[in-house]
Computed example of a mutant assay.
Amino acid sequence: MLEAKSDKISVVLGTCHGVETDQGSERGNRKVFGVKYAPRGETEEKMLAADAVVVSAGPWSCAAEDWFLGAVQLPMEGVKSTSIVWAKPKNEDVDATALFCGEDDRFGTHLEVYPRPDGTIYICGIGGSDYISTDELKAGAFREECNAKDTRAEAAKNSFQQMSSMYRTDGELDRVQACMRPCPPDAIPYMGAIPGYEGAYINAGHNCWGIAWAPACGKAMTELVMDGQSRSIDLTPFDPSRFTPAAQRGGRGRKKKGMSVGEQW
């Protein structure tokens, strides 16, 4: 959570439990004026004052279904994916060329290889990811600790070493890691205002493209929050309430299940 204080930004670490609201300016609307949370390592709930709240917690953003009393339904699947990073070679330069490999049935991989300016190489597309349900994410699954799957890291290592004699003989792994990719059922992010609430927004569900899309999404959401409308991007396709039955938008509703689009999209 970020807390704005005059000319600076403060980072507040904790677990959000919901929002505080009051009567809005329009009939039936609620106005957000605070966030309920427990600081990291504590159980006592506190309140953080807020003029506007942007839910942007990756796959765990689906918990906002409960914070806004069913006004919006946010089905989400987490894809827990392992990745590896090769250490910089001692006496060799790394070619600045990304590789997008086909399926390697020997190891069950479809590697994506990204050289970095510091000489390390990041590799994803390892396959064998775990799929985490909306209910599990809402309960906080893997929020604090998201460990790699050792068998998939080994598969990625072996697959890449079949393509590079240098890494086969002298390569060393710098680290093995995992991330949780946020995947709405239609593969489209949630970006926009929460229906029935003033000062409440969401920007989540960008799968593995969040880093690449961040500048454009940040600009669009800033315009929406500050000016009431995004001028740079038409946010209509990203409507956060698209899975909410029309009769229940802005009110209580039940979760609607969607179809999985698989690990790659």
Rank of each mutant, 00 (worst) to 15 (best):
M1C: 03
M1N: 02
L2S: 09
L2H: 05
E3V: 00
A4E: 00
K5I: 00
K5W: 00
K5D: 05
K8H: 06
S10C: 09
V11N: 13
T15L: 09
C16W: 00
H17K: 07
H17V: 00
Q23G: 07
G24M: 10
S25K: 15
S25M: 08
S25V: 04
E26G: 10
G28R: 07
R30P: 00
K31Y: 07
V32G: 10
V35I: 15
V35L: 13
K36R: 15
P39G: 06
G41S: 07
G41T: 08
T43E: 13
E44Y: 03
K46T: 03
K46F: 00
K46G: 07
M47I: 15
M47K: 14
M47D: 03
D51F: 01
V55N: 08
V55W: 05
V55Y: 01
A57P: 07
A57F: 03
G58R: 11
P59D: 11
W60T: 04
S61Y: 01
A63W: 01
A63Q: 09
E65V: 02
W67A: 04
W67L: 07
L69W: 00
A71E: 00
V72P: 03
P75W: 07
S81L: 10
T82G: 11
T82M: 05
T82A: 10
S83N: 06
V85P: 00
V85H: 01
A87K: 01
K90M: 04
K90N: 06
N91R: 10
D93Q: 09
L99W: 13
F100Y: 14
C101H: 01
G102Y: 04
R106L: 14
F107L: 11
H110S: 14
H110C: 14
P117A: 06
D118A: 02
G119R: 04
G127D: 07
G128A: 10
D130W: 10
Y131S: 14
S133I: 15
T134W: 05
T134H: 14
E136L: 11
A141S: 13
A141I: 08
F142Q: 06
T151K: 02
T151V: 02
A153T: 09
N158H: 13
N158M: 15
S159Q: 02
S165E: 08
S165R: 08
M166E: 14
R168T: 10
D170V: 01
D170T: 09
E172D: 08
M180C: 12
R181M: 13
P182I: 13
P182L: 10
P184C: 11
D186R: 05
Y190H: 13
M191Q: 09
M191F: 06
G196D: 00
A200G: 13
A200K: 03
Y201V: 02
H206Y: 06
H206V: 01
W209L: 15
G210A: 12
G210N: 12
W213N: 13
A214L: 13
P215E: 06
A216G: 14
A216M: 15
K219M: 07
E223K: 02
E223C: 05
E223H: 08
V225T: 06
D227F: 11
Q229D: 04
S232M: 08
I233F: 09
P237A: 11
F238Y: 15
S241N: 04
S241C: 09
S241D: 12
R242C: 12
P245M: 11
A247N: 07
A247M: 04
G250C: 04
R252P: 03
R252V: 01
R252H: 04
G253E: 07
K256Y: 02
G258N: 01
G258H: 02
V261G: 06
G262K: 03
E263Y: 05
Q264M: 10
Q264C: 14
